[in-house]
């Protein structure tokens, strides 16, 4: 085989790789579009009028997750599954956003942390790497941290909307999350950085609870009977 032939041969590999990446990029763009739509649906919970509509908004989001599953199913066909990490960078960002949206929907529905298995199911993917397109621990955790930040905003806006019990529940939830994260030996830089942000969310929510406490608004909430 001459040098020229060898380079043509290698060029074959490279072109194939580029084609795959091009295909992946297109599907990922569709995922991003859907993710943005889900976000727009869920953003309305921050509006004063938004709290009553939580169930309907969550239902709407759940519908959009069908589209997500279809698109991801399409994505899976674009590359050999054992090379997941070869192309990981392409969908890592949107996958974390989708984890955030999924965990946020479930939180709004049940006020509990949805486990990785459940998120994977919502996205139509696996948990165990060997089984196929899967949800990485890091990506799951990153998505959870984005949600934590969204919850700190929700705590603030709950008060604006006159719901004084929700911040306390959020506070407990976030504290538990924080304890969980403290167990981890994070070395991975971007996740570590995101986790550092969690402290600010904890702090922000704590401040909201404090503001309610000193005004006796937490007790008021208790006595007036929680809406949940």
């Amino acid at each position: 085989m001459s040098v020229t032939e060898m380079f043509s041969h290698i060029q074959g590999f490279l072109s194939a790789d580029q084609d795959i990446r091009e295909d992946i990029r297109k599907v990922v763009q569709m995922l991003e579009q859907t993710a943005r739509e889900i976000l727009t649906v869920l953003q309305s919970v921050h509006q004063p009028s938004g709290f009553k509509e939580i169930p309907s908004k969550c239902a709407r989001a759940r519908e959009l997750f069908c589209t997500v599953r279809t698109t991801i199913a399409d994505l899976k066909t674009k590359f050999p599954m054992e090379q997941y990490y070869r192309f990981h960078e392409h969908w890592r960002f949107v996958l974390q956003r989708l984890v955030f949206l999924a965990t946020f929907v479930v939180y709004l529905e049940t006020e509990a942390l949805v486990i990785r298995e459940e998120v994977a199911k919502i996205l139509g993917i696996e948990v165990v790497r060997e089984k196929g397109f899967h949800l990485d621990v890091e990506d799951y955790l990153a998505g959870v941290l984005i949600m934590a930040s969204e919850l700190s905003r929700l705590a603030v806006n709950s008060v604006t909307s006159g719901d004084y019990t929700r911040p306390l529940r959020i506070s407990n939830f976030i504290n538990e999350l924080d304890s969980g994260f403290r167990l981890l030996n994070l070395k991975n830089d971007p996740l570590r950085k995101r986790y550092d942000g969690l402290k600010y969310d904890v702090k922000k929510i704590e401040e909201v609870v404090y503001d309610l406490s000193i005004r006796g608004l937490t007790k008021e909430a208790e006595t007036s009977g929680g809406d949940k």
Binding site: L168, N172, K203, V209, Y210, S213, I214
Partner: peptide
């Protein structure tokens, strides 16, 4: 900034009540 925030918020009630507020949080939980 964090100390500032604590002070500013703490300014809304008398100092001696401040500790109570925080400790009550724990019991409350």
């Amino acid at each position: 900034d964090a100390c500032y925030a604590l002070r500013v918020r703490g300014s809304e009630i008398p100092k001696h009540m401040l500790a109570d507020v925080f400790s009550s949080r724990t019991t409350h939980m």
